[in-house]
Amino acid sequence: MHLTLAKRRWLWAYAFLLIPLVFFLTIRIWPAVQAFKLSLYDYNPLDTEHTFRGLGNYSDLLHDTIFRRALLNTFLYVLYGVPVGLIVSLAIALGLKRVNQFRGFLRFLYFLPYVTALVAVSWIWRWLYQPNGLLNNILHNLGFRDLGFLGSTGQALISVTVVTVWYGLGFQVIIFLAGLEGIPDVFYEAAALDGATAWQRFRFVTLPLLNPTIVFLAVIGVIQSLQIFTQIRNLTTNGGPLNSTTSLVLYVYQLSFQTLPARMGYGAAITVVLFVMILVITVVQLTVLTRRYEY
């Protein structure tokens, strides 16, 4: 059999891609299609027959108070957590960039949570947040009133957000440091020659040139916050007190694995909603990031 050189290379390419292709089709694409299909049914895995509901699951969502609470909470996690995380980590990165001594050590401290398991970290914080835990003890010794933290409906969501921000700082600091490294010194020198103050150098040089980094981190932060689950499951008792910390994904988990009979179709409908939200953000990101920056 005679094959041209080009055709023989085609065959090699297909042979190398065979296993990855099978994987992506069966484990990533087909299940995504299945999730859409699932969301149209009343689905309990123990049943043999599953009732087709059309868009019934979606219209039920509109009247579900727990879903609305989970949606609101998830938005609040994004709204509180992402901006605070970005501002704090940028401040830390700017600080780390200026110091010459112990930089590696300080960076190590900030990055430490990121390499440890979120589950372990959540339990440590749950321990710190106890009514008679370390944080309340510190408050007490400083002469303040004790706080309810995770036990209070008003403070629980903020307490979870604090852990999320704390956990993500290290990653954001590293990316910001890399972004700052990419800004040529001549810009600062030029700005300083023009008599720019430190604030003006930050406002008119650092911030605009760091814009792609900020957008990148903001998008990652938003997407991760929309998917928030692990912290809540381990810090709180199943989204409590009184669903004040329940997120979308936690609600999906409860519907699918902690409810009898399991309501997986309904859960799948919520994951489709989540998918659409993430898709919108990704598309917005692509249009923002592909815009050219000129200075």
């Binding site: 859960g267 799948a268 989540l274």
Partner: peptide, 14 residues
Amino acid sequence: MVPTEMLVLPWYLM
């Protein structure tokens, strides 16, 4: 673009 959360139910059933 597909979040893991959307795939876990089909993976589980699979």
